[in-house]
Design a protein around this nucleic acid. Structure first.
Length: 442
RNA sequence: GGAGAGGUCGCAUAGUGGCCUAGUGCGGAGGUCUUGAAAACCUCUAUCAGGAUUACCUGAUCGCGAGUUCGAAUCUCGCCCUCUCCGCCA
């Protein structure tokens, strides 16, 4: 959420930011219009209430019919006006939640991914003196992956990991945690079933609602009955809780961890390393990456989340540090990658500046996204109500940032495909060997 | 799943319709006293919104939301959450 005062003072800037993100700027005018109405109504109602409070003070001492009648008349006027204010306020809040964040001045303006800028490229493509396989063929031939049974049981994009792939999955998660712990990050295993409010706080909603799995349908009648218990559930009017969803990233519960709290400046920065399974519908991507485990509905991830003081120099500093953390891991694994500065048209509504890290994947013969690193400014903190008492005594909203550390399935692809050998085996990079317990898969 | 208790200012507590402009204690800030410190004493001590903009005024907020009333922290209803006991269980 953006400060309403800032929107009043800089409407054109906010509109331009929306346009740059390929969004409709009209919501800004809606907000300003509702803001006007809201303030006019509020002033009017405040005066009525002030009068009512005065009358009630008098009524404590002298109860006359005249005063009571006057008070009743005021009450009637308030009853007429208050619902209107309530409605306007609701509309105002809804509109406010739809205003996208602005971007920092160094972010390139662009329509789509073609506007992204390669900031750096590290390492080289591996050279194979044989025809490299993709991760699916590798996974099948080494008995690491089963996608046929995966889709049989779980549906489209379902998969089973088997044997050494399981050890790699756990090893990668543990490796990332150790790495971040050594840098002072606090490990967290958050709940991943979250209320709608948490998704609004992080800025995933309203824009990304279709991307999340609603855990329980709003209408129990839409449930397929597969058991007697299911029938009971369907018939009960009250035995379901609405508005819970599966989070697509630990960012959601971590952003809301301190929701509604006032921290002290000396508590900052706060750095979290959150482990979670991640659930994504991938609704906009039906035709994309249909084979293998590049784009899946569930995977595991370690996510970095930072709360720091309200200062963009500080945010930028953390942004680079989060980037470095992710880069160190790729370097530890000896992987070839590039860092992109995302343009306005290819970043999300809540983000102010974003780097994507793309890692070379020989099976795709191109780079594939493995990390996404964002400056959020106050946007999430305003939604979640996370403030801190600054050294000068004033209250400020924290700045928040987040970046992937390691996302399981995509890192498996990169490792398998880049470290495949002529004989069909896969080597494990040295840094990972202690975490997985073997140095070759064959 | 059954039964009960409860959610009040940063923390702890008081508050059963107008004396609440939410009291008291702790914690925090400033001051008096003192060579310095402690103690004691004094003052201040929430947030949000609107309107003025040194200072101020008004409104809202006692878990959240509705309702009753001229008037609600207090009464009624719904929801959220916490705790205790019993049952079941990875």
């Amino acid at each position: 959420m953006i400060d309403i005062q800032y929107i009043r003072d800089n409407p054109d800037q906010i509109k331009q930011a929306a346009i740059n993100k390929n969004l409709n700027p009209d919501v800004v005018d809606q907000v300003l219009d509702l803001d006007q109405k809201r303030r006019a109504l509020e002033t009017e109602i405040q005066q009525l209430r002030a009068k009512r409070n005065q009358l009630n003070d008098q009524l404590k001492n002298e109860r006359t019919d005249e005063l009571i009648q006057e008070s009743q008349a005021l009450k009637q006027q308030l009853n007429d006006k208050e619902p209107e204010l309530k409605q306007v306020n609701q509309n105002f809040t809804t509109a406010m939640l739809q205003v996208p964040n602005t971007t920092l001045e160094e972010v390139p303006v662009g329509k789509d991914s073609s506007g992204n800028v390669v900031v750096k490229t590290v390492g080289d493509k591996p050279q194979f003196d044989f025809t490299p396989k993709n991760h699916i063929d590798l996974g099948l031939s080494l008995n690491l992956l089963d996608v046929d049974r995966g889709s049989k049981v779980a549906g489209y994009r379902g998969y089973y990991l088997k044997n050494q792939a399981v050890a790699m999955q756990f090893g990668l998660m543990r490796y990332a945690l150790d790495k971040l712990n050594a840098k002072g990050f606090t490990s967290i295993m958050p709940p991943i079933i979250n209320r709608k409010e948490a998704f609004v706080n992080s800025g995933h909603f309203p824009w990304g609602e279709a991307e999340s799995y609603a855990l329980i349908p709003d209408d129990p009648d839409t449930l397929d009955i597969v058991s007697e218990l299911g029938a009971q559930y369907k018939n009960s009017k009250l035995d379901y809780k609405s508005d819970t969803y599966l989070a697509g990233t630990a960012e959601v519960p971590l952003v809301s961890f301190h929701a509604g709290e006032t921290l002290n400046e000396k508590d900052l920065p706060i750095t979290y390393a959150g482990f979670s399974p991640c659930y994504r519908r991938e609704v906009g991507n039906y035709g994309k990456d249909t084979r293998g485990i590049y784009r899946v509905h569930e995977f595991m991830k370690i996510e970095q989340v930072v709360l720091c003081v309200n200062d963009f120099d500080e945010s930028r500093k953390w942004h680079e540090m989060l980037l470095q953390n992710a880069e160190e891991m790729l370097s530890d694994f000896g992987l070839h990658y590039q860092v992109l500065l995302m343009c306005t048209g290819d970043m999300g509504e809540p983000q102010m500046k974003k780097y994507d890290i793309e890692t070379w994947m020989p099976g795709r013969d191109t780079f594939g996204e493995t990390a996404s690193n964002s400056i959020m400014g106050e946007f999430q903190a305003r939604r979640a109500g996370i403030k801190y008492r600054a050294a000068d005594g004033t209250l400020k909203y924290v700045h928040m940032l987040n970046n992937t550390a390691i996302a399981s399935s995509r890192m498996l692809i990169a490792l398998w495909e880049n470290y495949q050998q002529k004989d069909g085996s896969i080597k494990i990079p040295e840094a990972l060997v202690p975490y997985v317990g073997f140095d070759t898969i064959n």
